[in-house]
Design a binder for these strands. Structure first.
Lengths: 133, 133
DNA sequence: AGAGGTATGTTATAATATAACACTTCCCAT
DNA sequence: ATGGGAAGTGTTATATTATAACATACCTCT
C-alpha cells in the first residue's frame, strides 16, 4: 500500500496528535504543506479509513490514526473516549453478539461502530482528588 | 414524565416515520405546528433522549423514537441500519465485554454507542433478485 | 405576588461535509 | 512511445448539522 503525499501528511498529523482531530483541525495544521480546502483533507481521510490506517469517531466527528501495529482490518475495534481529556483508546472487542443478531435477522453486516464515552482513569483520579479538598 | 407540547410533536413525528429523521427533516415537518428554528427541534430532542424516549444515531446524524415498550434505560440498545432503505432496527445487546474492558482500565463508563451498518434482509433479497435477471 | 427553574421563539453563526469541475499524474496495454 | 483510463489534486461554492445568545413566557412553590 503506497500512500500519496497528502495522505501521508494527514496520517502523520493524526499520529502525532494525542487526541482525535477534526477534519478542520487537520486542515488548519496542514496549511503550510499546502492544504487549502476541506475536500483535500476529507479525501485523504477517506482513503486512510478505507485501508484501515485511520478511523472516524462517530460520536466526536473526529479522526484518529489506527494504534495497532498489525491488521486492524481483521478484528473489530472499539474506542473508549474520555469526555474530560478527549483521549480515545482503541481496543479489540468480540462482536459475537452482533454477528449473531445479524445472522439470525439475515442482516448483511458491512461495518460495526462501537464507542464508549466516559472518563478515563487519569481524569477520574483527578476529579476525585479535586473533590477531596 | 410529562412532555411539553414541542416534545410531543417531535416524538410523534419520530414515531410516525418509518426511518430515522434528521433534525432538519423534523423541522420541515413541524413548520405547521409552529416550529421555526433548529434550536426548537434540538431542544426537544435533547429532552427526549435524556429520558430514553428517543435516540440519536451517530453514524447517520439522525434520530429515532425508542421502539421498546418498556424501559430502554435499563439495558443497552444497539441499532442495525440498512444502507439501502435507511431503516434502523433497535435491539438489545449484552455489553459484558465493554463493561469488562472499562472496569479493567478504570474507565468510568457513561454511555455506549453500538451501530451496525449493512443491508437488511428485505433489501438483500431485492438486491439478489435484481442480480438474477 | 415574586423568585427560580425550565421551556420557548428568534436571530445569527459555527462546525462539519459534499458537489462539481478543470487539471494533473501515473500506469500500462496497445 | 503513446494515448486512454483510473486515481489524485486544487479550487470554488454550497449543503448539512449544530450551537450561542438573549429576551420572553410559563409554571410552581412559598
Amino acid at each position: 500500500m503506497q500512500l500519496t503525499a497528502n495522505q501521508q501528511y494527514v496520517l502523520c498529523a493524526l499520529k502525532e496528535a494525542n487526541n482525535p482531530l477534526s477534519a478542520y483541525a487537520l486542515l488548519k495544521q496542514l496549511r503550510k504543506p499546502g492544504f487549502n480546502a476541506p475536500a483535500q483533507v476529507y479525501r485523504a481521510l477517506d482513503r486512510l479509513i478505507e485501508h484501515g490506517l485511520a478511523y472516524r469517531l462517530e460520536t466526536l466527528n473526529a479522526y484518529v490514526a489506527c494504534s495497532q501495529q498489525s491488521n486492524c482490518e481483521r478484528s473489530l475495534m472499539a474506542f473508549a473516549i474520555c469526555d474530560a481529556c478527549g483521549q480515545a483508546d482503541e481496543f479489540e472487542v468480540n462482536d459475537g453478539d452482533l454477528r449473531h443478531w445479524a445472522q439470525s435477522h439475515a442482516f448483511d453486516l458491512e461495518r460495526t461502530v462501537i464507542e464508549i464515552r466516559g472518563r478515563c482513569a487519569t481524569c477520574t483520579r483527578h476529579q476525585n482528588e479535586g473533590a477531596m479538598k
